[in-house]
Simulated scan of single mutants.
Amino acid sequence: MKTAKPVPQEVVQQVADYFSVLGEPMRLRILNLLRDGEKCVQDLVEVTDTSQANVSKHLKVMLQAGILTRRSKGTLAYYSVEDDLIFDLCNLVCDRLASRIEEQAKSFRAFSLTSKR
């Protein structure tokens, strides 16, 4: 049997940091809005119904993590997804959660059909 080599701490930390970026609901909302393409900050502020400071804070975190890219045009800043693989990762998680919920629903249905009143 082959034993796994220890992973260097800095690698583990970088992976954990990347996942922590996705652990914030507002960032997931913003990513979903950027799924269709580039958007300016003001568009994201309007759709998320939150402050520009809040949206900008989350965009900065995702930009620093390499998830987003930014371009300026005049006074406006436009953001887009740098790596579409982020959507594959989100889809995997959503599919797994949906499967679990479906299994739970089957258990509830089975219980409700077998119990007598």
Rank of each mutant, 00 (worst) to 15 (best):
F87L: 12
K73L: 10
V41S: 11
F87D: 09
K57I: 02
L76Q: 15
R96K: 14
M1A: 13
L34S: 03
T114C: 03
S112Q: 09
Q13P: 00
L113V: 05
D88G: 10
V41D: 03
L97K: 13
V7Q: 04
T75F: 15
I30Q: 01
R117T: 03
K73E: 11
K2A: 05
S56H: 07
E46G: 06
L68T: 01
T3V: 10
R35N: 07
V81A: 12
R100C: 13
R71Q: 05
R100L: 14
A105R: 14
S72A: 04
D88V: 12
D49T: 13
N54L: 09
R96S: 13
T50V: 14
V41F: 07
Q9V: 07
N32Q: 12
T75A: 12
P6C: 03
R27Q: 04
A105P: 00
V7A: 02
P25C: 15
V11Y: 07
N91K: 14
V15W: 12
K57W: 02
M1V: 06
L92T: 08
L85R: 15
R27I: 02
A4G: 06
S51R: 08
L22V: 01
A105C: 02
K2T: 06
M26E: 08
V61H: 01
Y78V: 09
Q9D: 08
N91M: 06
E38H: 01
S99N: 12
K5L: 13
S51A: 11
S72Y: 02
L97G: 06
S51Y: 10
Y18W: 11
G23R: 06
E24F: 05
A53H: 05
S99L: 14
L34A: 02
V15T: 09
Q42T: 09
A16Q: 13
K116I: 08
K39T: 02
V45C: 09
Q42I: 03
Q14S: 10
A98P: 04
K5F: 11
K116E: 08
D17W: 04
V47E: 13
F19I: 07
D88F: 11
Q9G: 02
G66K: 08
R71W: 03
R109D: 08
I67E: 08
P25K: 15
V47G: 00
L34E: 00
Q9T: 06
T50A: 12
V93G: 07
N91I: 03
Q14P: 01
S112L: 10
